[in-house]
Nucleic acid binder design. Structure first.
Length: 598
DNA sequence: CTGGGCTGAT
DNA sequence: ATCAGCC
């Protein structure tokens, strides 16, 4: 008896996944655009962590050894990227930019270069104001409060690429709800993507689908600087999973987010009836032992309980079998998490060719401690002014970079953790067994590091002397004989200050709206008798920078011009009965709804 | 001679 | 305290 529970597919969401193109390289290029035309790479220690597409054309790739890269492409320009603060700063800036579009605060970052946005509510709303009799001349309202902020689009077609590739969309009359919703998602995605490029100078590769898993994977079909929408099946109102199932079936098992190296090896072994070959080149995805999602799924004995038995082991996650089974079937009900105001942990690490004396260790601990305290002040301090709207006589000099005045700790980490990675001893044959095993020790974080009056240097000294030395001795009681390949220093266990919660709510929500105002104000159609025509403003919204990678988009600009450019206040305009505001008739439905809001 | 982070589960 | 997973 098959007792497995098949979760009902929830296809009601629209999720957009952004992946900034070669992010570390893009951060350098944003500052120095001349790099864009050259083969350019970013180095950390002995490897190229990422490179631009010009470099990739010449055979370079991510996580490549510097020596190999220089041999293959001697002209490559290389910058050091071991200090990742600039990437973190850029990541946060872009994250906040994207976040400003959300109505529900569901915006989740993964690493520095990926963001999910749950735009279900925006799509719901815009589905309601859609004129089903004239889909071609639709208007997408981007601001929830202002019906004039948004863009024109053609709702008879999806924009950008689709999966399946030659997806012939239903005729306007026959179009189903699910398809239409994803079309709206695709148009919103291109809008945000172009805004990102125009206002921040970053391009992104984007996927649009009904869950996080699929949105992330489907975007990969067209890289860089492009987007792909996973379309639902028409005429199968009960099951929109088939395109998704077919799409996923061709994926290498280990490429599915959530199925990492260990799980993939176990699954391969089961299907091949033998230990799978150790695919050494983790960088280069191609395995000889190609085991796909489809192969696993079609294996007759594979079900959620069997997977649990196969995959569960000591220390493994309960319900892993069920979770993997869901992933194989394109089911991912995980939510796009609400933005968090403070991270769970802050950590600083460095790796070493050789680190085997105590004085050296103390010096490195001091460097790490300084970085950590600096990071704490950057990421855990918030301005007081958000709590109590201070009268206007506060000091006008807020320009100093690491200013701590008027700042309060948003959270107090309770724990400090020191981690090392000892280098393995030599084997008799003279080779070194590579080990990535870490050992760590935790302790209460002394309160003195929260003193904002003290200098970072003196605090770091004190931390090393009063805390880290002892922790290090616990990890490495021997006087000598060890050699560390990595040291990591972290603060964890954040206790948030009263009035401040993990997820965005209360005052953070209002900040969010303030940011939305900020981002959207440039797009707002302000006044019709203004000399700058609204059409220009709206056309600017993100459609200016067409590079020929999307053919569908320019029509939106044209639609705007058709509507507004001829005649200062065209006959197509209507006047609101409630507030008297004059605006294009296509926006009137939304505007009326605006008045009907609480 | 494989970076410097992050999250979450046990 | 460690592991597995993500970039």
């Amino acid at each position: 008896m098959d007792t497995r529970k098949i979760p009902s597919r929830k296809e009601g969401r629209v999720i957009i996944h952004f992946d900034y193109d070669c992010f570390y390289a893009a951060v350098f290029e944003a500052k120095n655009p001349s790099l864009k035309a050259l083969p350019f790479a970013v180095q950390q220690k002995q490897i190229i962590v990422t490179c631009n597409y010009e470099a990739r054309r010449r055979g370079l790739h991510k996580l490549q050894l510097i020596r190999d890269a220089k041999r293959i492409c001697p002209e490559v320009i290389i910058e050091l990227g071991e200090d990742i603060s600039r990437f973190r700063d850029a990541s946060k800036e872009l994250y906040k930019f994207i976040e400003a579009y959300t109505w529900n605060g569901k915006v989740e970052r993964l690493g520095f270069d990926e963001v999910w946005l749950d735009v279900t509510d925006m799509v719901d709303y815009n589905m309601e104001i859609l004129n089903k009799n004239d889909l071609e001349h639709s208007f997408f309202q981007v601001s929830r409060d202002d019906p004039t902020v948004g863009f024109d689009f053609d709702a008879t077609a999806v924009t950008g690429h689709t999966y399946p590739k030659d997806y012939s969309f239903p005729s306007a009359e026959a179009v189903d709800e699910a398809t239409l919703r994803l079309r709206l998602g695709s148009h919103l995605a291109i809008f945000v993507r172009h805004a990102l490029e125009q206002h921040k100078g970053y391009t992104a590769t984007v996927g649009i689908a009904t869950n996080k898993l699929l949105s992330k994977l489907v975007g990969n079909l067209h890289k860089p600087k492009d987007q792909t929408t996973l379309m639902p099946n028409p005429n199968t109102s009960g099951d929109h999973g088939s395109h998704a199932m077919a799409f996923l079936a061709d994926h290498e098992i280990g490429k599915v987010p959530g199925i990492g190296f260990k799980l993939a090896q176990k699954l391969r072994e089961h299907l091949l009836h033998r230990p799978a070959d150790f695919d050494q080149g983790l960088v280069y995805g191609g395995t000889k032992e190609r085991v796909t999602v489809g192969m696993v799924r079609e294996c007759p004995d594979v079900n959620s309980e069997m997977l649990e038995k196969l995959l569960a082991g000591p220390g493994s996650q309960h319900g892993i079998g069920y979770k993997v089974w869901c992933l194989l079937h394109a089911i991912d009900d995980s939510e796009v998490s609400q933005m968090r105001t403070v991270p769970r942990q802050i950590s600083i690490e460095d790796s070493y060719i050789r680190l085997d004396t105590l004085p050296e260790v103390l010096r490195e601990l001091n460097i790490l401690a300084k970085s950590l305290i600096t990071r704490m002040r950057i990421d855990l301090l918030g301005s007081d002014e958000q709590f109590e709207p201070v009268p206007s006589e506060d000091d006008p000099d807020e320009t100093r970079a690491p200013s701590t005045d008027g700042k309060k700790w948003l959270a107090h980490p309770k724990t400090i953790r020191l981690t090392t990675r000892p280098r393995q001893a030599m084997l008799p044959d003279g080779t070194r067994p590579r080990s990535f095993k870490r050992i760590s020790h935790s302790a209460p974080l002394p309160n003195f590091i929260f003193a904002l009056g003290e200098s970072i240097e003196s605090l770091a000294d004190k931390l090393v002397k009063e805390c880290l030395v002892g922790m290090f001795r616990k990890l490495h009681p021997e006087k000598a004989g060890w050699n560390l390949s990595l040291v990591n220093l972290a603060v964890t266990n954040m206790a948030e200050t009263a009035g401040n919660s993990k997820t965005a709510n209360g005052r953070d929500i209002s900040n969010m709206f303030r940011r939305q105002e900020d981002v959207l104000k440039d797009f707002r159609v302000t006044d019709h008798d203004d000399s700058s025509t609204p059409s220009e403003v709206v056309a600017d919204v993100g459609l200016k920078q067409e590079h020929g990678d999307e053919q569908q988009a320019p029509m939106v600009v044209d639609a705007v011009h058709d509507e507004w450019d001829d005649g200062s206040e065209g006959e197509d305009d209507a006047r609101c009965e409630v507030c008297g505001m004059s605006l294009p008739s296509f926006a009137m439905v939304a505007h009326r709804r605006f008045h009907s809001l609480p």
